[in-house]
Nucleic acid binder design. Structure first.
Lengths: 333, 333
DNA sequence: TTGTAGGCGTTATCAA
DNA sequence: TTGATAACGCCTACAA
């Protein structure tokens, strides 16, 4: 039986309201009683029951965080940003993994709400537009990460995929490459789609004809990257450079290239996207685009806090540009 | 204003207890009223306030999970195991990152408890023995992951580090290597210390004299691995093989070896430990020891649930053996 | 089969 | 400066 506010009130010879006052640092309580109460609190090792407090306050000081896939390489940094920032604001985070399953995601939303979380951060979600609209209608604080959604009217922290796709491709172009392959998750994911747009834009701008054969599509995995690259290598006129829409794809591409006895960047230059931890560990170290995941995680809770403070549902959209991290996988011609 | 049990009681023309009964699938409620109530629940999109429920039930159906470092490469799989298994039991998980700071860890424990979590899983913690003892004394369910603690009397899920160290070294021995270096976190971490014990045991068993010069110590990071390997490479009689106590160390060692123009496994064979995701992506693919992190995460929840069910604090200790994953980084002599 | 009422541990309003 | 007391939303004897 852990102590309650009543226990300490009795022991200190005061009423519960007085105890509650010192607990919440309210004014109007004499120095002496204050000290006496503080002492007995320490004495009984008492700590207020947050559940009871939440019930009356109607707020829990916890925010929900739903990752669409916890094994995503970008997750750890992102999560750390969320947790760190939440703590700064005095919030704890309750955590769910949706396994990329939108049904699970929906369940998580319901559970989180029934647990009275004060707001929800969704990352990487692929669907559930209806759920989101419902939340919005109820004026419930939510922010999405990584998914622009001007149409869905939910506050969002996103990265500028088009600009990043452009950035990566442009770098290759500037290095003198003209035959640049692109491995992409394509229309399978919004991010892939957008990065491809950037890739196309850079080529078009450089007056290079788009060769559809140079664009191969696969899911976001090492294996897919490998397969895609193999297809590229079989082309009669193979590319001298590659822009992969995700680092994992680039890593798969490495395998295919190196297994053919080709060299990176000697024969083929590679630029990735995401700057996952592995990028700087593989050889040659991968030139890629950093997306500041830790910062994004933090920004998402900033935005959520803002959302919670404001009366009516706003709909801010913060788009973060990426930054090219030059390492050793591109050959300057 | 979201609906409460009273709202639906009124609307359905029954008392709150009856509603509560159907909410909790209790018997003794007629088919008709049951249906009527279910209907209005659906109608008002009602979902019980878990905070209120927790207050009376004195249980929250959430378990706390404190990672000592969320950026640890083993974390994602472990966390997934925890989250998945917890969900199976109907539990949610509230999540903290201690940044390896035992003060933060202590805070997290306090916070989690004040939030009335039903149990706590601690992973990778380095210190806070006092906190743990306090929890044990209060009969509060806790399980530690990765840290054997026979002395601390807390239930634990651990991996058999000594056996694993032996396993990795023995494999190198069986491959014909006799001059085997060891990069270790040494006495800095319990896991490193134990794996080193395994390394020593294997050598001793093979009647190979221990050469202290072959054992270098550093923190668990790629950079440290690199530096340690450099020292090994400067030896007049350099090793032909290496057992690294952590994959990240092995990856750093790769850098040092390859930068010298040496080949893996041609000149130097490498065995790691952990089987982090990167291990199969680097080249040559790293032979290492898998520790079944996903399973461990799940097992920790199983154990915690067991702990919660039992009256008195038990103190089970489950030790999981690792498994060698043979890939391409070892040369058979 | 259903309803009444007390209690879970806090906070907050209103008196004293 | 302090103390009763009514919420908060739910569950659970106990009664009816």
């Amino acid at each position: 039986m852990t102590a309650t506010i009543i226990d300490i009130a009795k022991k200190a010879g005061v009423s519960v309201s007085t105890v509650s006052r010192v607990l919440n640092n309210k004014p109007d309580v004499s120095k002496e009683t204050q000290e006496r109460i503080r002492a007995t609190i320490k004495d009984l090792d008492y700590s207020p029951n947050k559940v009871a407090r939440n019930l009356v306050l109607k707020r829990s000081n916890v925010i929900g965080f739903i990752a669409s896939d916890i094994t995503n390489a970008s997750f750890p940094e992102l999560a750390r940003g969320v947790v760190v920032k939440a703590k700064e604001y005095g919030y704890s985070v309750m955590f769910f993994d949706a396994h990329k399953d939108s049904r699970v995601e929906k369940e998580a939303i319901g559970l989180l709400r029934s647990k009275q979380v004060d707001g929800i951060i969704l990352s990487f979600n692929e669907a559930n537009r209806d759920e989101l609209l419902k939340l919005r209608d109820e004026n419930f604080p939510v922010v999405q990460i990584y998914r622009k959604s001007s149409e869905s009217m939910i506050s969002t922290i996103a990265i500028d995929n088009v600009a990043n796709g452009y950035l990566g491709t442009k770098y290759l172009l500037d290095a003198g490459h003209t035959r640049i392959g692109h491995i992409t998750t394509g229309d399978l994911t919004q991010s892939g789609y957008e990065r491809k747009l950037g890739y196309l834009k850079a080529l078009t701008e450089a007056n290079i004809d788009i060769d559809e054969n140079l664009i191969v599509e696969g899911v976001s995995s090492v294996e897919a990257g490998r397969e895609c690259m193999e297809r590229l290598l079989e082309l009669k006129s193979r590319p001298t450079a590659l822009f992969a829409s995700h680092d994992v794809l680039a890593i798969g591409a490495y395998d295919a290239i190196l297994d053919r006895g080709l060299s990176i960047p000697g024969d083929i230059s590679v630029v990735g996207h995401d700057n996952i931890e592995i990028a700087k560990m593989i050889r040659p170290r991968l030139t890629t685009i950093d997306t500041f995941k830790y910062i994004l995680g933090q920004a998402s809770v900033d935005l959520l806090i803002e959302e919670m403070a404001v009366e009516s549902h706003q709909c801010k959209e913060l788009v973060y540009p990426g930054e090219l991290v030059v390492r050793d996988s591109v050959r300057i011609l």
